[in-house]
Write a protein that binds this DNA or RNA. Structure first.
Lengths: 223, 223
DNA sequence: CGATGACTTGAACGCCATCAATCGCTGTGG
DNA sequence: CCACAGCGATTGATGGCGTTCAAGTCATCG
């Protein structure tokens, strides 16, 4: 699954390259800031823009009628989100911390796609990457134990937001729990267990700054 | 989620239309039969073909090292599966019953896509539909109770393979359980419970032929 | 300071998994 | 034809993993 065990991988993933495709073309784009906790778009709203995180972090989620929440993905700098083929957003997106995003008018992408086949290709590639992530998440949610889930989460985030050997999580335990289909207590217990095993170390009292000491050990647990 | 409550919907979903796009174009295709239980392609194998179910049923799954299985989707007549953007299959696909599929050389689709922008569009639409299904499944696996999962499954299948008011499930309880992230016993208990409530009726001793008597009741449970 | 929010830790509960027995049907061979 | 094995499914008993409920700690902020 998330087999990226590097402690210091390339910062910007290929999606930035993809947006390169979008941005150099004749598509209009601008920037916008969202403060911590604010909604960027809501589920079932018409999709007017496509977004790319410049700074900060975003979560995309679905809600059940009684408030149960499932987070589908976290978006960190470089990631594109809110890309829809249909007319409406299928998730609600919120800024986890103060966040700057680039906005691209969906209409202008559509227009560009009409004349530029490479653009449609690009959209297809991004959608497929997205699909692949969600498919792996289905396996995690359907069949993995709580420890395996938390280990997988750490490995995923370790690959995506580690700098100078330290991973700084922008999201709280509730967000993690709702991403992994668990409760905050279970997430907390798994993290404590990993610490006791010497797989990781916390650098701050809030325990959001994490050094992974034994990625192979975590990968062993994930499997 | 799966809000199709019709007991007798259009047999062939839009995907057939999509493949229409594929088949009328200059892409080579043929037919092939797989017997019950046989593998159509394996995870991580190079993707040489794209498939459409003509008759029968197919399951796509991922495995963990110790044998735990997660079924990502069931494919019934009209459905396309095995469509990859990358080089390799991300699931293993097996025939649930004796099954006839149409094979389309992936290469010929790729070639057609180079010259025909509508073809890429078509691929994008199919991938997006796929993505949407998996996104809903993530919510189900992450946050729904066992009864809600089974109810959602029944409603989904009711929309896809009901004829003359009767839904005939091609898959056994193990397949259903591995699709819903449950055990066969839990699936069985939920179905018995629904029968007791008068939401459905079994027509055969194997309890694969089902008449849904109260789809609204099931939808209530799903939510 | 007292209040609040994020996180951890402990104890008890409950949903679903596990283990096991049984039922009904199918196919096979004496 | 019947005995019997085998498969798929249901049903019951029990147990465990993760949830729920409840403190408790620590840091921040008014």
């Amino acid at each position: 699954m998330f087999t990226n065990l590097d402690t210091n991988p390339e910062k910007k993933p290929r999606l930035l390259g993809e947006l390169g495709d979008l941005s150099h073309a004749k598509v209009s784009s601008g920037e916008f800031k969202y403060s911590r906790g604010s909604e960027i778009f809501g589920q079932a709203e018409p999709a007017e823009y496509i977004y790319q995180v410049i700074e900060g972090a975003v979560r995309s989620h679905k809600l059940l009628a009684d408030g149960r929440r499932q987070i589908g993905a976290f978006h960190v700098p470089g990631d594109i989100f809110g890309l829809e083929n249909g007319d409406c957003h299928r998730f609600t997106a919120e800024a986890i911390v103060d966040t700057t995003v680039r906005l691209i008018r969906r209409q202008s992408v559509e227009r560009a796609a009409k004349t530029d086949p490479a653009m449609v290709r690009s959209l297809l590639t991004m959608t497929t990457d997205n699909l692949q992530h969600v498919e792996n998440h289905v396996l995690l949610l359907g069949r993995k134990t709580s420890q395996e889930r938390v280990a997988a989460f750490l490995l995923e985030m370790n690959g995506r937001l580690t700098a100078a050997g330290v991973m700084v999580l922008p999201m709280n335990r509730r967000d993690i729990a709702d991403y992994l289909g668990l409760t905050i207590e279970t997430v907390s217990r798994a993290l404590s267990e990993f610490q006791r095993k010497g797989y990781l170390r916390f650098l701050d009292p809030l325990q959001r700054k994490i050094v992974v000491l034994n990625a192979a050990g975590l990968a062993e647990l994930d499997r």
